[in-house]
Design a protein around this nucleic acid. Structure first.
Lengths: 124, 124
DNA sequence: ATTAGTGTACTATTAAGCTGGTACACTTAA
DNA sequence: TTAAGTGTACCAGCTTAATAGTACACTAAT
């Protein structure tokens, strides 16, 4: 999380996304404690209020649980995490498909394009 | 172009994208005249300056040509349009792949997901 | 020369996001 | 009880992007 933010997207959203990615990838597990708002803010180089906003929104979404005086933790609700993963995947895939269709591409063209990219990568 | 804009993205960018999509899809052809800034603004329901901004940026990118007193036209440079199409495709595909990888998916999983979506659609 | 239609330039105004600062509430451990 | 660490709540201010309004400049046709 080296504070290199996209200037055109709210920082708090970028941090939220990053945390969610860590969760669905398994970097964070259910019940893990997140850094305190103040520590996290220093690490990332933003104001504590921005992290507060991140935790607040994540809690509203049921992704984390904040306990006054103790800290903020990844939810113990594993099902919620599974749902999160499905939601995130669906959003990405749907976006890809609609964007490509708006340009006039077919499903077949979409697939072959990704195959080509896979070949060009080391980690195929 | 029924003015239903995403609140979280600049309107002028959304209009730019829409025009670019129309170009690469063939809805607009090279040399075609675009609506005047004022007409377009009324059609879409935004201020003329917003359209002005759209045309200005598209001109900077070599996609259109504005002629004072005459109007704004799709470039005659067909090669530029081909390049545009490749750029747009590459951006969409790259974004899809990096987003999916950040979540921990493999190329194989990406492809099967799209296949599934294709099956669920009428226009498979 | 006039008019209508076009792009262009300039200057507010508005809204969102981030920051900084302060104060408060709760929990745990010493 | 005290202190340190935590989340929470406000609020004022700054900055930037986006939008809007108005006036100007050019072209073509009459």
């Amino acid at each position: 999380m080296n504070h290199e933010f996209n200037r055109h997207k709210p920082i708090y959203k970028q941090i939220m996304e990053h945390i969610c990615q860590d969760i669905v990838r398994g970097t964070y597990e259910h019940g893990d404690k997140l850094p305190s708002v103040r520590d996290f803010a220093v690490q990332v180089g933003v104001n504590a209020n921005t992290i507060q906003r991140v935790y607040q929104e994540l809690e509203r979404d049921g992704i984390v649980e904040s306990k006054r005086g103790q800290g903020t933790f990844i939810t113990e609700n594993e099902e919620r995490i599974n749902v999160l993963k499905e939601e995130m995947k669906k959003e990405i895939v749907q976006r890809f498909i609609t964007d490509m269709m708006k340009m006039g591409f077919t499903y077949h063209e979409m697939m072959t394009t990704i195959e080509e990219e896979a070949k060009n990568d080391d980690s195929s």
